[in-house]
């Protein structure tokens, strides 16, 4: 639709966003592989998955869900603010998003260390003694929340870079696609958590 725009300008707004969306698709497909393993093992070990799930802390899981959803709100608001030329407010919201992201990771850290402290981690004698179903459940738990956690970490690094750029003024109401793309990434990581939460913490 904006042929002139996309051919002659150095940056193509819609093009950048499209590239980002396609990158997000690759992330989705990456997680599809893991969800495939999950659904196969869940259908094979229903009882054991239920038993193992009830040993995860629903409180921490719910808390982390709330934290991440709220971080998505602040992320969206920061993009909204920079569009309306309010760079200061945008910067604050970006900072809040980073804060929530770190909060999420801290919770995750305590959750993992408690489990590891109880001798529940991949290839541990304690876990193998629990039988096949629970071995698979906790294997998937560490795998999927671990890779998700790495994505949160990457998002935090990305946002810190965006904060520097906003501060320097290279992100502004004329050129904010990099912040918007970082936002898209952050929201996608959130979407993945929205599925991880019920499949690990809420098996009834």
């Amino acid at each position: 639709m904006n042929k002139e725009h996309s051919l002659n300008k150095k940056t193509d707004y819609t093009g950048s966003k499209q590239g980002m969306w396609m990158f997000l698709f690759t992330e989705l497909l990456l997680f599809t592989g893991m969800f495939l393993l999950y659904s196969v093992f869940r259908s094979r070990y229903q009882q054991e998955f239920h038993a193992a799930s009830s040993e995860l802390s629903r409180t921490i899981g719910t808390l982390n869900t709330v934290i991440l959803l709220t971080s998505s709100l602040t992320m969206a608001l920061s993009v909204n603010a920079i569009r309306k030329d309010k760079n200061k407010i945008s910067l604050i919201f970006q900072g809040l998003t980073v804060f929530f992201g770190l909060f999420f990771l801290a919770n995750k850290f305590f959750e993992w260390s408690a489990k590891i402290h109880h001798g529940i981690y991949p290839n541990s004698p304690g876990l193998l003694a629990h039988g096949k179903g629970e071995t698979m459940f906790y294997g998937l738990y560490y795998l999927m929340t671990g890779i998700h956690g790495l994505h949160v970490l990457a998002g935090i690094v990305l946002l810190l870079i965006m904060m520097v750029l906003t501060k320097k003024g290279s992100l502004n109401s004329d050129s904010f696609v990099r912040l918007e793309n970082s936002g898209l990434y952050w929201h996608l990581v959130d979407v993945i958590w929205v599925y991880l939460f019920p499949v690990f913490y809420l098996i009834s």
Partner: peptide, 8 residues
């Protein structure tokens, strides 16, 4: 759409 599956 396929390569990420190889990745994982």
């Amino acid at each position: 759409l396929a390569t990420p599956v190889l990745g994982i």
